[in-house]
Design a protein around this nucleic acid. Structure first.
Length: 740
RNA sequence: GGGCACUUAGCUCAGCGGUAGAGCGCUGCAUUCACAUUGCAGAUGUCGGGGGUUCAAAUCCCUCAGUGCCCACCA
C-alpha cells in the first residue's frame, strides 16, 4: 500500500468496477427499499446544492448493506421555464429572441440545446460516488411520462377538476409568461406615491399610468369624509379626455392610507380585481402582454410601463392635476424570480386545477404522520401552506414543456386570436379573419406562435389532433405538473405493489411546497396512496460563513473542484459531519481538507495493520479464538457501542451523530490509543485479530459516507491473503450487527 | 402583521436540569516509528441582556434585543 491515500489513483477505477459488477441495481432478494432522485435539470451542471444528494446515496448504500433490495432511481427534469430562460439568454447573445421563431422550431431548438448539455450532471454525480441505478434514468419528456401526464389531465378534466378562466396572474413581460404565486419574489422598493386630483377628490397611487384602466373610485364605507359621494358618479379629468366613474364603498379600503380614496383598476391590480368582481366593475385592460400601454391609452399607447409613468406624471404636473409627490414611499413589489423584473398583474386566461378536494387527503396524511417530515418543524410549514393553498394555475406561456393537450377547432372558434409567423412576418388576429383573408390552415399550423382562445372556447382533450381543422393550445404545463407525478412515472409494473410508497425522499427544503406537496397530491389522487414514507429536508449549502452562494458575491464553490483536489469522500463527509439537521450547510475548503486528512488516516491505519500481519506472516483467526486482554475487550466493547450509535444515527437521519461517533472512535480511540498499544504486542495473534475485526467493522460503517477510500482499503486487503477478507466488494458487504 | 427557528471558544456548530464540548484555526513541543494529510500538550467562553422556578439552569418559564427562514398585506 502507498504511503498516503491518493484519491486520484483509486476513485475512477473503483467506480467503474462497481458499475460493471452491477452493484447499483437492486438485489434479487431482500425487502425493497426505494429512493427516487429529485430530478435535476437535464441541462444543468453540478452545483453545491446537488452535492447534498449525498444524503440519498448514504441511505441507499446503507440499506443495501443491511440486505435490502435497495435502489435509487435517477432522472432528469426538462425544467420548462428555467431552461427556456437559459436558452433565451444564449439567443440574446446572437441578437435573437423567441419571437423570431414559430413554436415548433423554438421547441426543437431548445430540445437540441438540452440534448447537447444533458448527461453532464450524471457524469458529475458519478464523480461523487453516487450509486444510483443509472440504467433506469427517466426524463420528464420521455414518452411514458408525457403519456401519463396526458392521462392525468384527461382524468381531471373529465372529473371537472380543470377549468379555464380569466384570472389575475402575475405576468413577466420580459419572460413572456405568467407565474404561479410561488414563483413570485417580493422585494422592498422605494417608489413615489403620487397624490393626484381626481374629480372632486385627491387620491394617492403609485401607478398613475394605469389611470386609463380605472373603472371606479373606492372609499371605506365608514369613512365620514366621503359618505355623500358613495354610489354617485363623478367626472374625472383624464389626460386623454374626461371620463366618468362610480364611487363605491368597500371594506378593503384603508381610510388611513393616503387620503382614504383609491382608484380601482380591476385589470391591473389584484385587490382591485377582487373589488371589481364584488361590485361588478368592468375589467378594462390597458397594458398588453408586451408590457406596453395599449390603444385605449390615446397618445400614450405604445409606451412601456415605466416610461408611461414618467410621461403621465409630467403631464399631470403640467396640467395642474398633481397635488404632491411623496418620493420616499416604501412598499414591496412582486418580481420575477428569474429575471428580477417587476411583474405586471394582468388578467389573462389560464388553465387551473381545483385544489380544494385534492388537498384534503394530503392534509390528512400529513396530520396523521403517514408521511414523516424531518426535521419535524417542516410538518407545520407544510400544513400551513396546504391550508392557504389556492387553485393552481398550471398553464405557462412558454414553448419548452409538455403542451396542454387541448385542441381548438378553427371553424368552431373563428374569433380565437392567434399569432403566426408567416414568411418571417409576425401576424396577429382572429383565426377566422386571417383565414378569410386567404391564410391557409396549413400555414397557420406551421407558423403558429401562440393561441389566445377566448373564454368559453370549445376544445377537445386529445393527445393528437382530433381532426384536420384544430390547433393545439400553445400553453405548456407548469413543470411541477409533470414532476409532481414523479413517483408515478419512475416506478413501473409490479413495483407499485412492492416499492410504493417509496421509503425516503431527501430534498432541498425550498421545494417542499412546489414539489413535495404536489407529489403527495397527485399520488393520493391518482393512486390513492402516499408517495413516500419519509421526507428529509436540508437547507441550502452555503459558504464557510453560512452565506448563500451567489455569482455576484463571488463565493460560489464548485464541488467538482473540491473532489479533484481532496477526493469525493472528503467532500461527502464535509456535508454531513458536524451539520445539524435542517440547518444551512457551510462548505469550507478547510473542512474538506480536514476530512481529506481523515481519509488518509483511514488508509494509513489499514496500511499499518497490513504491515503488522505481513511481519507476523501467518493467517490469524477471529477474536473469539484467542485469550484477550482487558484492553482488547475494552475496544471490542466500545465497538459494540459504536455500532449501535452509528446505526441509530442513520435510522433517525442524524448523520452528524453517526459520522462524529466513527471519527472520534477510529481516530482518537482506536488509532491513537489501541493501535499505539499493540505496537508492543507484535507477535500476539489476539491483538492482530481484534484490531483487524474492529477496523473492518469501521470500514463497513464508514462506507456509506466515504465509499471510495473504504473500498480501496478493502480491495488492498483482498489482494493480501493474510487479511482474511471474504466478501468481494465492500459496497455489497453486510452491515455490522451487534454481538448479543 | 402572523408563524417557525436560532443567538454557546476566532469561525462553523454539538450539548438541552448536576458547575462547558467537537471540527477547523491558534500556541508550544516531539517525531529516521503506519500516517507532518502525524503525535502529545496547551490557550481561548461571566453559554445574547434582564427576571423567575429549583438544593442546582447553557439546559425549564417569562421578558427584552438581535439574526435567519416561511407566509400574508401594502392602492
Amino acid at each position: 500500500m502507498d504511503k498516503a491515500y491518493d484519491h486520484k489513483k483509486h476513485e475512477e477505477m473503483i467506480y467503474k468496477l462497481w458499475e460493471e459488477s452491477g452493484a447499483f441495481g437492486p438485489s434479487s432478494s431482500g425487502k425493497p427499499y426505494t429512493i427516487l432522485m429529485p430530478p435535476p435539470n437535464a441541462n444543468a451542471s453540478l452545483h453545491a446544492g446537488h452535492a447534498m444528494y449525498t444524503i440519498d446515496d448514504i441511505m441507499v448504500r446503507w440499506k443495501r448493506m443491511e440486505g435490502y433490495s435497495a435502489v435509487w432511481i435517477p432522472g432528469t427534469d426538462h425544467a420548462g421555464f428555467e431552461t427556456q430562460f437559459v436558452y433565451e439568454k444564449n439567443l440574446a447573445k446572437e441578437g435573437k429572441s423567441r419571437m423570431d421563431f414559430d413554436r415548433a422550431t423554438l421547441y426543437q431548438n431548445i430540445y437540441n440545446f438540452v440534448s447537447e448539455n444533458s448527461g453532464l450532471i450524471f457524469k458529475q454525480f458519478r464523480r461523487l460516488g453516487f450509486s444510483a441505478d443509472w440504467q433506469r434514468n427517466v426524463f420528464t419528456l420521455d414518452k411514458n411520462v408525457t403519456d401519463k401526464v396526458f392521462e392525468t389531465f384527461r382524468q381531471m378534466e373529465t372529473e371537472g377538476k380543470i377549468y379555464r378562466d380569466e384570472y389575475m396572474v402575475n405576468y413577466c413581460t420580459h419572460c413572456g409568461t405568467s407565474l404561479a404565486e410561488l414563483e413570485i419574489d417580493h422585494e422592498e422598493r422605494i417608489d413615489s406615491l403620487y397624490y393626484m386630483k381626481y374629480g372632486p377628490f385627491i387620491l394617492a397611487t403609485v401607478r398613475p399610468e394605469t389611470k386609463f384602466g380605472d373603472t371606479a373610485v373606492a372609499v371605506n364605507p365608514k369613512d365620514k369624509r366621503y359618505q355623500e359621494w358613495i354610489g354617485k358618479e363623478i367626472e374625472v379629468e383624464g389626460l386623454i379626455g374626461k371620463f366618468k366613474v362610480k364611487v363605491i364603498a368597500d371594506e378593503m379600503v384603508d381610510p388611513e392610507f393616503g387620503t382614504g380614496v383609491v382608484k380601482v383598476t380591476p385589470a391591473h391590480d389584484p385587490n382591485d380585481f377582487e373589488m371589481g368582481k364584488k361590485h361588478g366593475l368592468e375589467i378594462k385592460q390597458v397594458i398588453g402582454l408586451d408590457g406596453r400601454l395599449n390603444d385605449k391609452c390615446g397618445k400614450y399607447s405604445g409606451l412601456k410601463v415605466a416610461e408611461a409613468r414618467r410621461v403621465v406624471v409630467e403631464d399631470l404636473q403640467k396640467s395642474g392635476l398633481m397635488e404632491k409627490i411623496d418620493d420616499k414611499y416604501t412598499h414591496s413589489v412582486g418580481v420575477c424570480y428569474k429575471c428580477r423584473r417587476v411583474l405586471e398583474p394582468m388578467v389573462i386566461l389560464n388553465w387551473f386545477i381545483k385544489v380544494d378536494e385534492l388537498k384534503k387527503p394530503v392534509i390528512a396524511a400529513v396530520k396523521k404522520d403517514r408521511v414523516v417530515f424531518s426535521p419535524r418543524r417542516f410538518k407545520k410549514q407544510m400544513l400551513d401552506w396546504l391550508t392557504i393553498m389556492h387553485d393552481w394555475p398550471i398553464s405557462r406561456q412558454i414553448a419548452w414543456g409538455i403542451r396542454i393537450p387541448a385542441w381548438y377547432n378553427v371553424d368552431e372558434n373563428p374569433n380565437m386570436e392567434i399569432s403566426v409567423l408567416v414568411d418571417d412576418k409576425k401576424i396577429r388576429g382572429s383565426v377566422g379573419k386571417l383565414m378569410s383573408e386567404g391564410l391557409s390552415f396549413e400555414k397557420i399550423e406551421r407558423g403558429l406562435q401562440a393561441t389566445f382562445a377566448p373564454k368559453g372556447a370549445r376544445y377537445v382533450v386529445s393527445p393528437t389532433a382530433p381532426d384536420s381543422r384544430s390547433l393545439q393550445e400553445t400553453d405548456t404545463f407548469d413543470t411541477w405538473f409533470s414532476s409532481g407525478q414523479w413517483p408515478l412515472v419512475t416506478l413501473k409494473g409490479d413495483e407499485f405493489s412492492n416499492r410504493f410508497p417509496t421509503d425516503f425522499m431527501g430534498t432541498l427544503s425550498d421545494i417542499l411546497k412546489f414539489w413535495v406537496s404536489r407529489m403527495m397530491m397527485f399520488s393520493l389522487y391518482l393512486a390513492g396512496e402516499i408517495p413516500f414514507k419519509n421526507v428529509y429536508l436540508w437547507s441550502m449549502v452555503a459558504d464557510s460563513k453560512g452565506i448563500k452562494m451567489s455569482k455576484s458575491k463571488g463565493n460560489v464553490i464548485n464541488p467538482i473542484e473540491l473532489v479533484d483536489k481532496y477526493g469525493a469522500d472528503a467532500l461527502r463527509m464535509t456535508l454531513v459531519y458536524g451539520v445539524a439537521p435542517g440547518s444551512k450547510i457551510p462548505l469550507s475548503e478547510d473542512k474538506v481538507r480536514g476530512m481529506r486528512n481523515f481519509s488518509n488516516k483511514i488508509w494509513n491505519i489499514g496500511r499499518f495493520l497490513q504491515l503488522m500481519y505481513e511481519e507476523y506472516g501467518k493467517e490469524v483467526s477471529w477474536p473469539e479464538s484467542y485469550e484477550l486482554t482487558n484492553e482488547d475487550k475494552g475496544i471490542l466493547n466500545d465497538l459494540e457501542k459504536l455500532i449501535s450509535s452509528v446505526t441509530r444515527g442513520l435510522d433517525t437521519f442524524r448523520y452528524a451523530e453517526s459520522t462524529e461517533a466513527i471519527y472520534e472512535f477510529l481516530w482518537h480511540k482506536f488509532a491513537d490509543v489501541y493501535v499505539e498499544s499493540i505496537k508492543e504486542r507484535k507477535n500476539d495473534p489476539g491483538a492482530l485479530a481484534v484490531s483487524r475485526h474492529v477496523y473492518l467493522m469501521c470500514l463497513k460503517m464508514l462506507h456509506p459516507f466515504m465509499p471510495f477510500v473504504t473500498e480501496a482499503v478493502w480491495q488492498e486487503f483482498r489482494k493480501n491473503r493474510l487479511m482474511g477478507i471474504q466478501e468481494e466488494w465492500l459496497i455489497k458487504a453486510s452491515w455490522p450487527v451487534l454481538d448479543k
